[in-house]
């Protein structure tokens, strides 16, 4: 069962904190240079920057798929290294840039994470819950029994997001979640991200596109490994 979050999780000022985090690629290139960032519960941050600027690498470090060369990342005040990796990754959900689907049905792909040891004690969502997760992202036309790899890129992108949301993570790391979507679905995903923040999660959304003007959110820019607030 995922470790229950401490009671003060919701009131903690920083859910996620990065202090002077640097990361060097295996080829020696400095991809992230002294990045500091703090995200509070309920905060939605839109991070943009040129491709190759380190956005995806930053998300991988927070999900601990890679290790920073320098600096410290904490979740709920606890360094990432102090968490069991599978538990950490369930709390800090990462939506990767390419929506990978395993061979099999939509239902199988949606419930993947509930078959792992780290899900012990957690009840797998029933068909109605899976259906709801799809419908909320505009996938009403997609059957649970359909082959997941056969769906269009835009559908897979939303299916991957639905799969992640079913895990109920405290922090959402979304890497280019709307890159392949039409304007209508794009708006739906952006609204979903904002709604997730509204429910007390911290959301870090990465995109090479500028954020929608209408929504209020933190705007960050990552360029040549340096992170700054937009306008600063």
């Amino acid at each position: 069962m995922p470790e229950p979050l401490p009671q003060d999780a919701v009131t903690a000022t920083a859910l996620l904190r990065l202090e002077n985090v640097s990361w060097r690629a295996p080829d020696g290139r400095l991809v992230l240079d002294q990045v500091s960032l703090s995200l509070a519960p309920g905060e939605l941050a839109w991070l943009r920057g040129p491709s190759g600027g380190g956005k995806s690498s930053l998300l991988r470090l927070i999900n601990r798929l890679a290790e920073p060369s320098d600096g410290l990342i904490t979740l709920l005040g606890k360094p990432l290294a102090a968490w069991e990796p599978p538990q950490l990754r369930r709390h800090v959900g990462l939506l990767a840039q390419s929506p990978v689907m395993l061979p099999g049905t939509v239902e199988h792909n949606l419930s993947l994470a509930f078959g792992f040891k780290s899900a012990q004690g957690q009840t797998a969502p029933d068909q109605a819950a899976l259906r709801g997760a799809l419908d909320r992202l505009g996938l009403e036309g997609v059957e649970l029994g359909a082959s997941a790899p056969g769906l269009s890129l835009g559908q897979r992108q939303r299916l991957a997001l639905a799969r992640l949301l079913l895990l109920d993570p405290q922090v959402l790391l979304l890497d280019e979640p709307v890159s392949a979507l039409d304007p209508e679905s794009k708006e739906l995903v952006e609204t979903t991200a904002a709604a997730q923040a509204g429910q007390g999660r911290a959301v870090l959304l990465v995109s090479h596109q500028p954020p929608p003007q209408a929504q209020s959110m933190r705007r960050l820019i990552l360029e040549q490994g340096h992170l700054r607030e937009e306008g600063s």
Partner: peptide
Amino acid sequence: ELLLSLGAE
């Protein structure tokens, strides 16, 4: 990496 990121060992 997808499976790892979803909490797989």
